[in-house]
Measured scan of single mutants.
Amino acid sequence: MSGNGNAAATAEENSPKMRVIRVGTRKSQLARIQTDSVVATLKASYPGLQFEIIAMSTTGDKILDTALSKIGEKSLFTKELEHALEKNEVDLVVHSLKDLPTVLPPGFTIGAICKRENPHDAVVFHPKFVGKTLETLPEKSVVGTSSLRRAAQLQRKFPHLEFRSIRGNLNTRLRKLDEQQEFSAIILATAGLQRMGWHNRVGQILHPEECMYAVGQGALGVEVRAKDQDILDLVGVLHDPETLLRCIAERAFLRHLEGGCSVPVAVHTAMKDGQLYLTGGVWSLDGSDSIQETMQATIHVPAQHEDGPEDDPQLVGITARNIPRGPQLAAQNLGISLANLLLSKGAKNILDVARQLNDAH
């Protein structure tokens, strides 16, 4: 009898209710805020589980004197976190989706994509230029951005401005803007500013005609071990179906173009009346040469937790077992079709030249 009692006690200790789920994140304040929001949602869904947040620095956090596009290494903000995932030191990792490459290392998958916040870019102005827009900034004003995508589009749109690289986390960039006289304004992701509670610093939100956004911008991705079915089931509740389908289309477009950090590629997606609209573009580094096109596809946005595919093969690095396969494939095909259209119009040449120029500098 006593033996059975011990077995029952052991089973209770090993039951999922007692389990601590370890969540990996970057150390920056924004990353911690984003991770806290994901953990809060998981806690609400699984009140019996405990969650421990483990923060670590990544290569991208450490190399702050070089433009991201020049470092010449993929997975700048993800490699150390993936290493911890691989060694079973954490069970899942919360990322900004735009930091996750469209091809993940073997053994990993994006197990959830959370509801997207505003994906557009924002302009934050130096205190002396508050009330201005990019259009009304004085001639030769210097605007800071760490992104080739932003610089290429904005140089084309605002030729009277000069664009220079600015690195560091959000706090560091804002301090550089406010305390030094080098920059009249800087460009940042609206979602990051909003998550930090800095709505009052948003001086201008850039519309798609001015600057399309990065693939996955404004959404959070939760990376897990691809074979860890328990954790895949656990994080599945975080999937937002519309965000998922938009981001599958965007990531398929980028992957098929073979774009990345070192080339200016941008997108804009919208879901309306059962249609998914995808606009994508590529630019030369100075913005003088560009190709942009829009395509659409009829896609039914499923309700969360309709029964999805059981075999769960990944699409552009994403596993969404609780979302039907048909809409996911339709979104992926839309991204591939748009990429093929741009490639047929000469996108590869623009991107190759951009890559060579970026590598040469």
Rank of each mutant, 00 (worst) to 15 (best):
R201P: 04
N118P: 11
V23F: 13
F108P: 14
L329Y: 05
N118W: 10
H160E: 12
S147G: 01
A303K: 14
G131K: 08
A44S: 12
E73H: 15
G287V: 15
A40I: 08
E223L: 10
P105G: 12
K128E: 15
R251W: 10
L341K: 12
T145N: 04
L76E: 05
E86Y: 15
A270G: 06
G107D: 12
S288Q: 14
A226I: 07
L174S: 06
R156H: 13
T41R: 11
L148Y: 01
I71H: 08
C211T: 05
S57M: 01
A226P: 07
Q229M: 12
K62W: 07
F108V: 08
L42T: 04
L254C: 01
V124Q: 04
E139C: 14
G197C: 14
A191S: 08
D228A: 12
T66Q: 06
G131H: 13
A320S: 01
G203F: 01
D311L: 05
Q194Y: 05
D233I: 09
V202F: 01
Q296V: 12
E242H: 15
K43L: 08
A40E: 10
P105W: 08
D230G: 07
T136F: 08
Q292S: 14
L42G: 01
L49W: 08
A270L: 01
I336W: 13
M295P: 01
S290F: 13
R156T: 12
A330M: 01
L232E: 04
I110V: 10
A330D: 12
G107I: 01
T109V: 15
E306K: 15
L254F: 01
Q204C: 01
K74I: 07
H126P: 11
C247W: 04
K345V: 05
S141Y: 08
E293D: 14
L148I: 13
L170D: 01
R175N: 11
K43T: 12
M271W: 06
Q332R: 11
S45G: 07
H83V: 11
G131R: 10
T279V: 08
R22E: 10
T172Q: 01
K227W: 06
T59Q: 13
T172E: 01
E80S: 09
K176D: 09
P138F: 07
F129S: 08
Q29W: 11
G216V: 01
C114V: 06
G107C: 12
R26G: 01
K227A: 15
L177F: 05
L245E: 03
H239M: 05
Q217R: 01
P302M: 13
S57D: 15
K115R: 11
S96F: 01
E135I: 11
V143W: 03
Q314I: 07
V20D: 05
L170N: 10
Q153I: 03
H239C: 10
Y277S: 08
H83D: 12
A354D: 15
C211K: 01
R175F: 03
L238H: 01
I248W: 05
T35S: 09
V224G: 05
S146R: 10
S344C: 09
P309M: 01
L238F: 01
P127L: 14
P106T: 13
W283R: 07
A122R: 01
E80G: 08
T78M: 04
K74P: 06
S37T: 14
Q314N: 14
N169S: 12
Y213C: 07
D307H: 15
M271H: 15
L232W: 08
K79I: 09
L278E: 01
I113F: 01
L137E: 03
K87D: 13
I350C: 06
F51P: 12
N118L: 06
T58N: 11
L341W: 08
E89D: 12
R22T: 11
V267M: 15
C114I: 13
V222A: 10
Q296S: 08
P101L: 06
P106N: 13
D289K: 04
Q314E: 14
V265Q: 01
S344G: 14
N171K: 13
M212T: 11
H83G: 10
G308T: 08
R201Q: 09
G24L: 09
V316A: 11
L234K: 12
Q29T: 09
A214Q: 01
E223N: 11
K157S: 11
Q204S: 15
G335A: 03
A40N: 07
L254Y: 01
T133Q: 06
V224C: 14
C247N: 06
E86D: 12
L170K: 03
Y277T: 06
P138C: 10
T279G: 09
F77V: 01
H256R: 11
V224M: 15
D61T: 01
R325V: 03
T102P: 10
L161K: 09
K62Y: 12
V38F: 05
S284A: 15
K43N: 11
I291E: 13
V123D: 05
T102C: 04
V316M: 01
E209R: 09
V142D: 09
W283K: 01
H256L: 09
I54A: 07
Q304A: 15
R156Q: 12
L238M: 15
M56I: 14
D91E: 13
N200F: 15
S69G: 10
L278M: 06
V143K: 04
N88I: 11
A191D: 04
K227N: 06
Y46F: 12
T25W: 01
I291S: 07
V143P: 03
K348W: 13
V222S: 01
A219H: 01
T102Q: 07
S96Q: 01
G218D: 01
E250Y: 01
R321H: 11
H126R: 08
Q181L: 09
G131N: 09
F129N: 01
V265N: 01
V237C: 04
G216I: 01
A214V: 01
E135K: 04
H300F: 14
L76I: 06
G335D: 06
L188S: 06
E293T: 03
R321F: 14
Q304G: 06
I63R: 10
A55D: 11
L42H: 01
P119T: 12
P138L: 10
N358K: 15
V215N: 01
N200M: 10
K27N: 14
S288M: 15
P159A: 12
V93W: 01
G287L: 05
E209P: 15
G144F: 01
A354P: 14
L245G: 04
A122M: 08
G308F: 01
V235L: 10
A44E: 12
Y46K: 10
L85N: 01
K74L: 06
N169V: 12
L85S: 01
A303T: 12
T41E: 11
N200S: 09
L334Q: 01
A151H: 11
Q304I: 03
R116H: 04
L188F: 08
D273A: 04
D312L: 06
G197N: 04
A151C: 11
V93E: 01
C261K: 01
G221I: 13
T66P: 12
L315C: 15
P309Q: 10
S75M: 06
A84C: 07
G168Q: 01
Q29D: 12
P309K: 13
R255A: 05
A270M: 15
T294P: 15
D307E: 07
L134I: 09
L170C: 08
V215F: 05
P208K: 04
I323K: 03
G218M: 01
D228P: 15
G60V: 11
I186Q: 12
Q153K: 04
A152S: 07
G274L: 09
E209M: 05
L104C: 09
A191M: 01
E209I: 01
L170Y: 15
I166C: 12
A266L: 03
S290T: 01
N200Y: 08
M212W: 01
E86K: 14
L137R: 05
Q29V: 07
T190P: 04
T25S: 11
G60R: 05
T59S: 14
V123Q: 03
R164G: 10
H268T: 01
N349L: 13
M212S: 09
Q217I: 03
E86T: 10
L285G: 15
A189R: 01
V316S: 09
D99K: 01
I54V: 10
I33H: 07
F125V: 09
S262Q: 07
Y46A: 08
T59V: 07
E80F: 01
G317V: 06
E89R: 13
T145E: 01
G281K: 01
K74V: 04
V143T: 06
P302F: 04
P208E: 01
K87L: 11
R251V: 08
K115E: 10
P106A: 12
R156W: 11
V142C: 13
P264C: 01
Q296K: 12
L188E: 01
K176A: 08
